[in-house]
């Protein structure tokens, strides 16, 4: 079994085929991407991986297991974390609380510990807060630890979402259009951050519209159009692929 692979995954909604027979394999330690015009099925593919949707057919493999149709909390526990295209932070919790919530699945406090605040629970809370602050430093948000998430500027919210996702120590991190709405400088920072995440040992799988960013940092790219994979390869190969050029220039331009 592969570290991570989509195998002939199909998802239909009613009569509409959102993802059709898509296969894509990612090696550990890679930065991999999936691109395609709007409505190509990229987000649906992510939602299939994280268990929000159940595949109509096909299989999803991760870390020696098949995870297609498993629930989101189970998938997270196995080691896949994600961000969302339209930022889904816990808006009225502080930044550090958001990251601590992201750590939930790696915490051991049982009902009893939560009720009585046992020494074990207190020690764990301290550790988790430390870890959360460390992650906030990693995404350069340490000065905003006690700000409510909804008060943060847009670009900061994106970084906070990444910190929250990293809190569960994922082996695979899914980034859903992480550069959306960012200015060129922020994009530059983001690329540095994504590389740093990979260098910490987390494999990165991203969906992105920004071709420049994708071509710059990805080692492997799959292209989706109308739910089907029309190309896969290195950035150089993708750039030269006539079907990709047609898909982009022929429709979305």
């Amino acid at each position: 079994m592969a570290f991570f692979a989509l195998k002939n995954v199909t998802k239909t909604f009613g009569g509409l085929v959102a993802v059709k027979e898509v296969s894509y394999e990612i090696q550990p330690g890679q930065i991999a991407a999936m691109i395609g015009p709007n409505g190509a099925g990229k987000s649906t593919a992510f939602n299939l991986v994280t268990g929000l949707y159940v595949p109509t057919s096909g299989e999803i493999e991760f870390d020696e297991q098949t995870i297609g149709g498993k629930k989101p909390d189970f998938v997270c526990k196995l080691g896949i974390a994600r961000t969302f295209q339209n930022i889904r932070l816990f808006a009225f919790m502080t930044a550090v609380e958001n990251v601590m919530a992201g750590r939930h699945v790696r915490m051991g406090a049982m009902l009893w510990d939560s009720l009585l605040h046992t020494p074990k629970q207190r020690a764990e809370e301290r550790r988790v807060r430390e870890k959360a602050l460390e992650l906030l430093r990693f995404v350069k948000l340490e000065r905003h630890a006690d700000d409510y998430a909804h008060n943060l500027p847009y670009g900061f919210q994106r970084r906070l979402e990444i910190a929250r996702a990293l809190a569960s120590d994922p082996k695979l991190l899914l980034l859903d259009e992480p550069a959306a709405g960012m200015n060129p400088r922020e994009k530059e920072d983001l690329m540095g951050l994504i590389r740093a995440i990979r260098d910490r040992g987390t494999t990165v799988f991203l969906i992105e519209h920004d071709m420049g960013l994708v071509m710059n940092i990805s080692e492997r790219i799959a292209v989706l159009d109308h739910g089907e994979k029309i190309a896969e390869g290195t950035p150089v190969e993708i750039r030269a692929n006539p079907r990709v050029i047609e898909a982009y220039l022929g429709k979305s331009a």
């Binding site: 009902l111 009720l115 605040h117």
Partner: peptide, 29 residues
């Protein structure tokens, strides 16, 4: 006890669910 719950792993999970159930589930809750 209620205050303990509020400021614990479980209390944080409840808050997360209240704010965004789908995101909470993706955090492994």
């Amino acid at each position: 006890v209620a205050n303990n719950l509020r400021t614990s792993r479980l209390g944080r999970a409840w808050m997360a669910i209240r704010e965004d159930e789908i995101a909470a589930a993706h955090m492994g809750i």
